[in-house]
């Protein structure tokens, strides 16, 4: 009860923040809200099942591209609905064809998927429509983008909380620990993974769609930037990908850190990103929150 009241108060405060910020500050808040959403949505599937997906930017970029294609033809809410449907449809196809892959094969496939989607769109734009870049003319303010991302992020964390308390969450956790045991206990592996993957990918697509008006001008190379996929993984893993608040806890500081790095060390930034990816995957598989929980437990045991 107190937790709920505190959450609502925090949410109201977060919603009110843009009223007091400069444009630069608001830009940072948008970035943070976006990455909290991306990392949490990524963790909804990958954090529980431990299938590391690098397809985040494939869906994110598709969301942005859907807006770029449709923004002048239909109303904004419909554009978002279309983006969600396209993302969900692609997630179903990709899920059906890849969720049998295990371990590193899944990682590589999802990474390739983002490249494939980018190349396909580039090819299509160059050869069929003859326009590589597109403009997004939408009457949406930065504040509105922030509020939408805040709502989507809240929805994502709320949905994760709900899932973790229900059968689906238990099934995902068991799959993450041991698929053979999961199947022998009666869990339908394909169905469970497909549902979670599709939910996660649809949210990621919507996140891309909502964020896209910030760009004004989009091009495949801009919206399908693989750094987005790596960032989502690092943030979620650093915070603790199988914990409700882990991805958010990782996303906020890391977004600020990377923002600072990309401004001050634009050349070494990709190297730092790569090193962090490796460090987090190897050193902190449970994330900082997981490590803290272990320490607490040890403290209790010692006491």
């Amino acid at each position: 009860m107190i937790a709920l009241a505190a959450s609502i108060a925090a949410l109201v405060a977060l919603a009110a923040v843009p009223l007091f910020l400069t444009d630069y500050g608001l830009g940072l808040m948008i970035g943070m809200a976006g990455y909290v959403t991306l990392a949490s949505a990524w963790a909804l599937f990958s954090g529980q099942t431990r299938y590391i997906s690098l397809a985040t930017v494939a869906f994110y970029g598709i969301g942005a591209y859907t807006v770029a294609v449709l923004n002048e033809t239909i109303a904004y809410p419909l554009v978002l609905a279309c983006a969600g449907l396209v993302g969900a449809g692609l997630a179903l196809v990709v899920g059906l064809s890849t969720l049998r892959l295990s371990g590193i094969y899944f990682v590589i496939f999802t990474f390739g998927l983002a490249e494939l989607v980018r190349q396909l769109i580039t090819w299509y734009e160059v050869n069929v429509t003859g326009t590589l870049g597109r403009y997004i003319f939408l009457d949406i303010t930065a504040r509105e983008i922030y509020w939408q991302l805040l709502a989507l992020g809240t929805f994502t964390i709320g949905l994760t909380a709900w899932i973790l308390r229900h059968r689906l969450g238990l099934a995902l956790k068991v799959i993450g620990d041991d698929e053979t045991v999961a199947a022998h206990a009666g869990i339908d592996l394909a169905r469970t993974k497909l549902i979670a993957f599709t939910l996660s990918a649809t949210i990621i697509t919507l996140c891309g769609a909502i964020s896209s008006p910030r760009w004004t001008y989009v091009e495949p190379i801009i919206v399908f930037n693989p750094n987005v996929s790596f960032l989502a993984v690092i943030m979620a893993l650093l915070g603790g990908a199988n914990r409700l608040w882990g991805p958010a806890a990782g996303a906020v500081p890391l977004f600020l850190l990377f923002e600072w790095l990309s401004v001050n060390f634009p050349d070494t930034y990709p190297i730092i990103l790569g090193l962090m990816f490796i460090a987090v995957v190897f050193l902190l598989p449970d994330g900082v929150l997981g490590g803290l929980a272990r320490l607490r437990q040890r403290g209790k045991a010692a006491a």
Binding site: R167, L170, A171, K173, V174, G176, D177, D178, T180, V181, A182, H184, A185, G186, I187, N242
Partner: peptide, 28 residues
């Protein structure tokens, strides 16, 4: 049909109760 495995398979990140609840929740 239920089984045990020659090379023991448990769910290390879950509690004992969760380990066992799984087959009651998803079983027949």
């Amino acid at each position: 049909v239920a089984r045990t495995f020659q090379l023991v398979r448990i769910l290390p990140s879950l509690t004992l109760e969760e380990n066992v609840i799984v087959s009651a929740v998803f079983g027949r």
